[in-house]
């Protein structure tokens, strides 16, 4: 397992996760100006909602690292290990972020953890249906598109506040969809690229 963790860059994922959390605490509530189609709110997007994109990219890269072909023909349940890595990372960040939000340290903390889960799901999905090395293009494009379009709908989950339940559901759905694309014990048609 130690070698599996090293092969999948678990240490780097952990470091980036800790750095992201620290940045969310320190500068998370600052907003970056961005034009908005809705027009009403020129304030922009809180940095806390953007930073998880980078953590999700590093996590996705960790998932894609290792020996994909050898792992796909492994005796051990390599796909389940990858699912575990993603879920554990999201769970740790959610626990920490929930603590931050409940303690009132950072109101966007839980939204940041939600975005980490959602972005990771979108990246895994994008990598499976398009190409692995372009995995993070989908969450990046989605974040900017939603930030520009604005709105309070469930599909605008990347820019919604921590309290939005429908946004949490949408992000978790994205995560579930992404996890479903992880290498199955025998590869399906979708993941043959």
């Amino acid at each position: 397992m130690r070698l599996w963790l090293r092969a999948h860059r678990a240490a780097r994922v952990s470091v980036v996760l800790v750095v992201t959390m620290a940045l969310v605490v320190v500068v998370g509530d600052r907003t970056v100006p961005l034009p908005n189609l809705a027009g009403a709110d020129p304030a922009g997007v809180p940095i806390a909602l953007v930073l998880p994109l980078l953590a999700a990219a590093v996590l996705t890269h960790g998932v894609q690292a290792g020996l994909p072909d050898v792992e796909a023909t492994a005796v051990r349940p390599a796909g389940a290990y990858l699912t575990g890595l993603v879920i554990a990372t999201c769970a740790v960040s959610a626990s920490a972020a929930l603590g931050l939000t409940v303690a009132g340290v950072e109101s966007h903390g839980f939204a940041a953890a939600r975005n980490l889960a959602g972005f990771t799901g979108l990246a895994l999905l994008g990598g499976a249906v398009w190409r692995h090395d372009a995995a993070s293009v989908l969450p990046s494009a989605y974040l900017f598109a939603v930030a520009l379009a604005g709105g309070d709908s469930w599909w605008a989950w990347p820019v919604d506040p921590s309290s939005a339940v429908s946004s949490l559901a949408a992000a978790l759905t994205a995560l579930a969809a992404g996890l479903a694309t992880l290498p199955s014990p025998v590869r399906s048609r979708l993941s043959r690229r």
Binding site: V32, I47, V50, L53, L54, A57, V58, T60, H61, Q64, A123, G127, H132, D133, A134, A135, S136, V137, P139, S140, F144
Partner: peptide, 14 residues
């Protein structure tokens, strides 16, 4: 590119 593309996109935008 999985890391580089979003890093440069977000970093430059920030």
């Amino acid at each position: 590119p999985v890391i580089g593309v979003p890093l440069l996109l977000v970093g430059t935008w920030l």
